[in-house]
Amino acid sequence: MTGRERLLDPTGFDERTADTTLAPRPAGLRGLTVGLVDNTKPNAQVLLSEIAGELSRRFGTRGSRMYTKGYFGTPMEDDLLKQVAEECDVVVTAVGDCGSCSAATVADGIMLERAGIPAVSVISDSFLMSARAMAAVQGFPGFEFIAVEHPVASLDAGRLRDRVLAVMPDVQRILGAEA
């Protein structure tokens, strides 16, 4: 008999230091290049292009560049992150409408912020818990992202546009561009 001992903690511990600092926000969006990170989920490109179009109309952003992730379930590859951070001023990443990709989309946003690029992660609102859990895992609890009404994949262009218009105030706020 060994007698009384402490019960052990069976969890993994987080080695990454918490870093909840956002990238510096630009004074305004006029003339800036908007990066769009498509995670290959159906309708992601359409949704991203709509957001870029609204940013251009409302704030005079200079243009947008579309990038495609290798796999939706995991965060952006390091090379892609580096390229996007070099070529763009602000970034929108979408769409986190599944279990793994909701978490990955939030991780992308956090990685971009840490690389100095203001970023908007767009998920569908069925995956709020997964997105928040990922933010905590990445050492950034409370990271702010956009949740559009679920679903996204099965929408036609008109309904998708309604979804975008509904969240534009939040996109603007996260990018520091209050109307």
């Binding site: 969890t11 993994g12 997964s130 895992v137």
Partner: peptide, 18 residues
């Protein structure tokens, strides 16, 4: 299963979105 839950944080309603 317990390792998935405890070590990787794959809890239902959280990171496990089954």
């Amino acid at each position: 299963r317990l390792t998935a839950i405890n070590v990787f944080g794959l809890r239902p309603h959280q990171l496990d979105q089954a």
